[in-house]
Simulated assay, not measured.
Amino acid sequence: METSMIYELRRPKNIIPDKKYPALFVMHGIGSNEENMLSLVEGLEESFYIFSIRGHLSQGPGFAFFTIEGYGKPHREVFDDGIQRLSNFIDYACENYSLDLSKLYLLGFSQGAILSMTLALTLGKIKGIVALSGYIPQFVKEEYEINPGGDLAVFISHGEFDQVLPFEWGKENAEYFTKLGIPVTFKTYPEGHTVSLDNFQDFRTWILNDLKRGI
């Protein structure tokens, strides 16, 4: 199986033959790129194979995974295609790298958070996600087949003064997952549309702790 997606790979320094490793798939925001996300996950390669993925669409100086037709409304066909491409990439990585299929994680900021939550809700095989400042499109809630699987846990964060995606959307994300019976850690920060140092430290602590869940 091949992939058309461009990505940066980080892996543990001392790979043990035949050992299966957790995987962390990282998705950037609109107009950004796979390189910009690496500072958020630096050091986590000691615990994960990390795949930082570039959006397949050109967007300003960077890239995107989908386009939008209105506030909080992705173009449906473009969004569906982006989700399918990412789903295929996860399958590609699982086939071509020594990954523990019971420990697949997603991390995204803004557009990447939107994609992380959608993939977690529909793939049925994700163990944990870190969704930094995103939302769940209404058509995902109403028309996608929701299948989060039985082992998903979620970290959601949002800036209280987010000028791009309203803070209320972050609260709605947490409420939606909670209603599905999925464990949610919801953190808020007196920030705008960014990842503060406290947020950075909190999600890294959460993901390393969650990795131990079920061991």
Rank of each mutant, 00 (worst) to 15 (best):
F48T: 09
I50S: 07
F51N: 08
F51I: 09
S58A: 12
Q59R: 11
G60D: 03
G60T: 00
G62H: 04
G62A: 02
F63C: 13
F65T: 04
F66M: 07
F66P: 02
T67L: 07
I68F: 08
E69A: 06
E69N: 08
Y71T: 10
Y71G: 04
P74K: 07
H75W: 05
R76L: 00
R76D: 00
R76F: 01
R76N: 00
R76G: 00
E77V: 03
F79E: 01
F79Y: 04
D81N: 04
L86G: 05
S87R: 09
I90T: 01
D91K: 07
Y92N: 02
A93Q: 01
E95Y: 01
N96S: 06
Y97H: 09
L99K: 05
D100S: 04
S102K: 13
S102M: 10
K103L: 09
Y105W: 03
L107A: 12
G108S: 09
S110I: 00
Q111G: 02
G112A: 09
G112K: 05
A113Q: 09
M117C: 14
A120W: 03
T122V: 11
K125G: 12
K125N: 14
I126N: 08
I129P: 09
L132S: 13
L132I: 06
S133I: 07
S133C: 14
I136M: 14
P137C: 13
V140I: 14
E143C: 10
E145C: 12
E145P: 09
I146P: 10
P148C: 13
G149P: 12
G150K: 15
D151C: 13
L152A: 15
I156H: 14
I156S: 15
G159M: 11
F161S: 15
L165C: 14
F167K: 12
F167P: 12
G170V: 03
